[in-house]
Design a protein around this nucleic acid. Structure first.
Lengths: 182, 182
DNA sequence: TGCTAAACGGAGACACTCTCCGTATTGTTC
DNA sequence: GAACAATACGGAGAGTGTCTCCGTTTAGCA
């Protein structure tokens, strides 16, 4: 990749992160291009679909996801609290910008989605937490990672859509946790 | 309302139901107007916001909702099965067209939403089922109707987004049910 | 320094939402 | 049944966003 291309690529991602945080996932891409000081052509060459840009933006917080998971696993307390805390962290992670939870969660099963890798990181993280609980013998039989990822993603999606604050989300996560634990 | 206005109103609703079912909630309204044989001005005069049109479309299935609830309440079987069956019915009801679950569920808390009345019918129905279970002493303490409505709405939303079939949705509803029941 | 492949960026085609206002229709009154 | 408000119609067009095409510019190599 040529130096100027690299420069523009990075600049677009940087600006897009800012704009998406401000205006949500539906923000105008021409606006992003303008703020980044490039033409729309340049933006669309680098990121043919909106999701490609989203994927690039998310690259940076993948590290944060695994880090958060590590932290969650060291939690000292009941299995139930561990799970609920993790769910809260998870919801926070995928709710970085408006529309994120829906995009991320609905891409979860799609093998050709541009943000597939991100989904894998997320369900892997979920899987690690569930494995831990399974090792404790705390989990009901037949609990499946993707199912849980979707369920919690669903909670995050409606929390995002309705601008719910964490206090309103918690009871829902408790229900999910209770439904998963023995 | 003048006769010609009434005629156009009805025709628009009829066509919109068809178009929304075909193309989902995001279908072009100008397309609806064209198919209904009216100008966009006429459509927007009757339905200033997309949601007003959605609301009119839904008017017809409100009856169906209460009817389905009645049926659910006569269910002969365990409380768990009753609840799960009802959830399945509920998901079916709000998934009539693409994007419906998200719209309906996120309008749930909003007191000024044009589809508020529909949301009320839905949460009322949910409330009736929950009351029944509460009367059986089957429900955990602190279970709140709106919370449950959102939770199941979340499941419906991601099922809608990911085109999940009922078989994939069921386990999630089971988890929710188990989290709600004693 | 010159050359070529790579990249740029903006004009503009296309789609959708929504409004304004001149025109047409309804239904009421005499 | 003719005239006249009041009501409703509908399409032109402004505003906004997506995305492409292609003439121009630039990087990087020889």
């Amino acid at each position: 990749m040529r130096a100027d291309a690299r420069r523009n690529y990075d600049r677009i991602v940087e600006v897009a992160r800012e704009v998406f945080r401000e205006q949500g996932y539906d923000a105008s891409l021409d606006e992003v291009a303008k703020r980044a000081g490039v033409g729309p052509g340049t933006l669309y060459r680098h990121f043919p679909k909106r999701e490609n840009l989203l994927d690039a933006i998310m690259q940076s917080w993948v590290d944060k996801v695994t880090e958060t998971t590590d932290k969650a696993l060291t939690y000292e307390g009941s299995d139930r609290d561990l799970l609920i805390h993790w769910f809260e962290d998870y919801v926070g992670l995928i709710s970085q910008h408006k529309g994120g939870p829906a995009k991320l969660t609905s891409a979860m099963g799609d093998p050709v989605s541009p943000i597939r890798t991100k989904c894998q990181v997320l369900s892997e993280s979920n899987g690690r937490v569930l494995d831990e609980l399974r090792a404790h013998g705390a989990l009901r039989d037949g609990v499946d990672v993707i199912q849980v990822t979707r369920l919690v993603g669903g909670v995050a999606t409606i929390a995002d859509n309705s601008d719910l604050d964490p206090a309103a989300v918690r009871p829902m996560l408790e229900v999910v946790a209770d439904g998963l634990l023995k």
